[in-house]
């Protein structure tokens, strides 16, 4: 038994479908340390989103053990935070009210949450936008609000399911840099799902490379690029090498 923050052993997930059982995850084992930035990379159907849902306690695993901070883990917990591909902001709440939502649901101290909300809006570069409604914001700005909301209840682990997948390339790159800056400042453990290899290499300490049918953990790639990273990191020859290695593991290098 290790003393990692997250310890997953032999995790499997089987779905019953009309055409018979479908193995979404096949015997996946891993450890994640506190403060690590982990990416799950792979094509559609490799089980990366399923694994993230299991880590979030939103889906049951069919087999295996999952230990989070020393406790068996199978249901949502307030020390986890989730961010999805769409911002999922409630249009009837202002930006500030959206960021305050986790605090309201988890019944956190109101005054503290109000202060934290202002800090977070500042951190994601939305100072002065607190009283706007989500429909008044651009796609990139909405994901910034979602990022602030993710951090509102100060979760220990951030589970991010392709959070910038719906953004255009330029906005996505800016958001990556922002995310790294926030991660370095807060020291959270991040588990980040993406199908963009470059994004994964740029952001991560380690990359879990996953392959489909059935969903397997093909291997784990250590990213030894120096930190703190800026866009310059993409010009590092090591960056291209790592991208190339992962492409080969995924069998897309023809």
């Amino acid at each position: 038994m290790t003393d990692s923050l997250i310890d997953g052993q032999h995790i499997s997930k089987v779905y019953a479908t009309a055409t018979g059982p479908l193995v979404a995850l096949d015997n996946v084992s891993f450890n994640i340390e506190e403060g690590e930035f982990i990416s799950l990379v792979g094509p559609s159907g490799c089980g990366k989103s399923t694994l993230l849902s299991i880590l979030g306690g939103l889906e049951e695993k069919s087999d295996g053990t999952l230990v989070l901070a020393g406790k068996h883990h199978d249901s949502p917990r307030p020390d986890l935070g989730m961010m999805l591909q769409t911002s999922v902001l409630f249009p009837w709440r202002t930006v500030r009210e959206n960021v305050r939502l986790p605090g309201i649901i988890l019944k956190l101290d109101k005054k503290e949450q109000a202060e934290r909300c202002d800090e977070l809006l500042d951190m994601v570069g939305l100072n002065g936008f607190g009283d706007r409604y989500p429909t008044e914001l651009s796609g990139g700005m909405r994901q910034r609000v979602a990022l602030a909301r993710l951090l509102a209840h100060n979760p220990r682990v951030l589970l991010m399911d392709e959070p910038f997948g719906a953004l255009d390339e330029f906005t996505r790159e800016t958001m990556n840099v922002e995310l790294l800056r926030i991660w370095e400042k807060t020291g959270k453990t991040v588990i980040f799902v993406t199908h963009n290899i470059g994004e994964a290499v740029f952001l991560s300490d380690r990359i879990f490379v996953m392959t489909p049918r059935p969903g397997r953990l093909e291997g784990i790639v250590e990213v030894d690029l120096p930190r703190p990273r800026t866009m310059e990191a993409m010009r590092d020859p090591r960056f291209s090498e790592l991208v190339f290695t992962i492409r080969r593991m995924l069998g897309v290098d023809h």
Partner: peptide
């Protein structure tokens, strides 16, 4: 996705109804 978000925040039936 909104339902998923509410669940991840440990919101139960009543809070999901009230806020979402």
């Amino acid at each position: 996705n909104a339902v998923k978000l509410m669940r991840s925040l440990t919101a139960g039936r009543w809070k999901t109804f009230r806020y979402l």
